[in-house]
């Protein structure tokens, strides 16, 4: 249907977006690769030159490297598990007939609009603080000793904060998907005597599959880059207990001023992210109607 002229016009309309994204992808990546093979410390800018793979050896050899990979995995998988399971449960609940559904929806979605530094600061100070945080008060009230959340369970606490930020997103999307399920199908199953668990497992869950994969894809994109929450709450500590790959690179670059090693870490992070991305795109791509 489209003519030669409209095809070239289409290409022209596409080119600014494609061009910008190409530049945005290639220029920083090439520079990062370049720095990753250079001796480059921001404190000693005159000591420079090619040093081969030393930066990579340095980064991978950092005591925190394996911890960082493990922590990143735990953070991403933990938040995904909490938000998807929690999201399904809350969506099922809100989808039931109830009074004030509109307001419930607005209350549930609200945490999604909170900027990460604010979320982290509120949780860190007013909830997790072991002397006068609300959790400490709650623990005292029920006769327990206050628990130092960020000191004793730093990664778990960060998972809690991030889950709070992303649970509304998962809930809203799963709720929307649930509402598009035809009620005839459910009623038919009910008439045939299928118990609620079976109705959920064989009708609702397959219907939600697409929405769930979309939630996983989009959350993973954002979770791999979680930064502000860690910076504000634990600074990656104690020790390396809550240092993720992203945060480890940041530490090298801005706390140790070792731009070379940080660049090597950046390359490692980009490679790992691409492996995850490829895997995800394969699995999920089919569900996005491109």
């Amino acid at each position: 249907m489209s003519t030669q002229a409209s095809r070239s016009a289409a290409r022209l309309m596409l080119s600014p977006a494609v061009g910008l994204l190409l530049i945005w992808m290639i220029v920083p990546l090439v520079l990062t690769l370049w720095f990753s093979f250079q001796r480059y410390n921001l404190l000693y800018p005159d000591r420079s030159g090619f040093i081969g793979l030393a930066n990579y050896v340095n980064f991978v050899g950092t005591s925190g490297f394996l911890d960082a990979i493990l922590n990143t995995l735990i953070l991403v998988v933990g938040v995904l598990a909490i938000t998807v399971v929690g999201g399904i449960l809350i969506a099922l609940l809100i989808d039931q007939p109830l009074w004030g559904q509109g307001i419930v929806r607005i209350l549930v979605i609200s945490p999604f609009f909170i900027m990460p530094p604010v979320a982290a600061l509120i949780w860190k100070n007013m909830f997790f603080n072991p002397t006068n945080g609300l959790f400490a008060e709650l623990f005292k009230f029920i006769g327990l000793r206050p628990f130092d959340f960020l000191g004793q369970a730093p990664l778990g606490s960060i998972i809690l904060i991030v889950s709070w930020e992303w649970l509304p997103f998962a809930t809203l999307i799963l709720l929307t998907a649930l509402q598009s399920l035809s009620s005839e199908q459910l009623e038919a199953a009910e008439m045939d005597g299928a118990p609620p668990v079976k109705r959920f497992w064989f009708i609702m869950l397959p219907h939600l599959a697409r929405a769930i994969t979309v939630v996983i894809l989009i959350e993973t994109i954002f979770l791999l880059g979680i930064f502000g929450e860690i910076l504000v709450t634990t600074n990656g500590g104690p020790g390396n207990a809550s240092t993720t790959l992203t945060y480890l690179v940041y530490k090298e670059a801005l706390l140790d001023f070792d731009a070379g090693t940080a660049a090597a870490g950046g390359v490692v992070a980009v490679i790992l992210a691409n492996i995850v991305a490829m895997f995800l795109m394969r699995a999920v791509g089919r569900n996005l109607d491109a």
């Binding site: 289409a10 977006a17 494609v18 920083p28 660049a263 950046g266 691409n274 491109a290």
Partner: peptide, 29 residues
């Protein structure tokens, strides 16, 4: 409106640029 054979790949590629960890390119930027 004028989809080509590569439109789908192009869209996927665009989305994949979001996966690049920002911290990896902080120094050069």
């Amino acid at each position: 409106f004028v989809p080509g054979s590569k439109t789908r790949d192009l869209l996927m590629w665009m989305l994949s640029t979001k996966m690049m960890p920002a911290v990896g390119v902080l120094v050069p930027i």
